[in-house]
Nucleic acid binder design. Structure first.
Lengths: 189, 189
DNA sequence: GAGCGCATGTAAAGGGTTACATGATTCT
DNA sequence: AGAATCATGTAACCCTTTACATGCGCTC
């Protein structure tokens, strides 16, 4: 359950409404932690109930902005400091790989091509963002720096998966006698 | 909802009971797709209800082994062939990176060290598995080859995250004036 | 004044986790 | 005989997704 802490973290940057948070979750964290508005509104109500956030202001069409409280800020920091990191890696691409042996060779090749294209494109997009950050186009404050670090992780992971898909295409492991006879693959960049 | 297809995929290798599947999900897919036994038993009941699997045999202490049906096999293959891959990347490490700016410098350094150690160790373990596979110690059939490909993805992703954590430790982005002034980082292996 | 985007929510159904419960077999 | 482990399930709770519902304010 990290939606709770994700919301607190975003609110630590400044007051925001449920609508804002839904948009920012989608844009900034969407590929890492999807969250739809119903859950966000529900969680905001719970957080307000627990005194971790409070209503900051009322705006135009029923808009309600929340502000993080001292208790709330302490809670995010506690969460970040506590080492209990869940290292589960929920990525469908990896799950599917276990079942490649069930696929027709041509289907598999098409799949790997598409995957590689996707990860290469994503890595490229992230690199462009990173470049903009490095040129200071998004500010140089702590948040911008943290975002830069997060983007770097995204670049490296997407690169890794792109290179994996390329490797899998090239060694064509499911239709040849590659394994059990050939030397282990080199781990190039 | 991929537990359904994960179960079908495992059953495509041969009959198994809910208990078996829970163990295999934990061991083989646990770091990628966690699944607890209550959900597995429930899903098996649903799959049997839909005619995608059927009871294969009854064993010792109430053991019920299931077998995949032709419909079930067709359904996994359909799923694998359909290109609708969800590229969401649910990894808590990445989520936390967005909030690094809320951490004390020493806490952050300790966190990055621990993360790097974890990913390096995991990559090492996977490399050992991969070596065993390459020596043919786990057979050379289609399943073993698919497993090898999946492990390769794990190695590359864990390496990527280890190298990211090392990079973040070294550039110390949250306590220095690295960004907005320095040249972009090199993307070494 | 028509239409779009803002903004909040409820409802229903399903997915996932944790705790509880039970009994059978095998091992020592 | 006692302990460990095999094996299946139910119950409660929470998280997540999708669909439905509503109304305000701005722009054209």
């Amino acid at each position: 359950m990290s939606l709770r802490h994700g919301l607190l973290g975003l609110l630590a940057e400044g007051p925001a409404s449920g609508y804002d948070l839904a948009r920012r979750f989608q844009e900034a964290l969407g590929s890492v932690w999807p969250a739809q508005h119903p859950r966000i509104y529900a969680e905001l109500a719970r957080l307000a109930d627990g005194g971790l956030i409070e209503v900051d202001s009322h705006g135009p069409r029923g808009r309600k902005a929340y502000r993080i409280t001292d208790d709330g800020l302490a809670e995010v920091k506690r969460w970040l400091a506590a080492g209990e990191v869940d290292h589960t890696f929920r990525v469908e691409t990896l799950l599917r790989a276990y079942f490649f042996w069930l696929m027709e060779p041509e289907t598999l090749r098409a799949h790997l091509r598409a995957e590689r294209a996707f990860y290469e494109e994503t890595a490229g997009t992230l690199r462009a963002y990173a470049g903009a950050k490095d040129r200071g186009e998004w500010g140089t404050g702590p948040q911008a720096r943290a975002m830069r670090v997060a983007i770097e992780a995204g670049i490296r992971v997407n690169d890794a998966l792109a290179s994996w898909a390329r490797w899998a295409e090239e060694t064509d492991p499911m239709s040849s006698e590659t394994f059990g006879t050939a030397p282990p693959p080199e781990h190039e960049a």
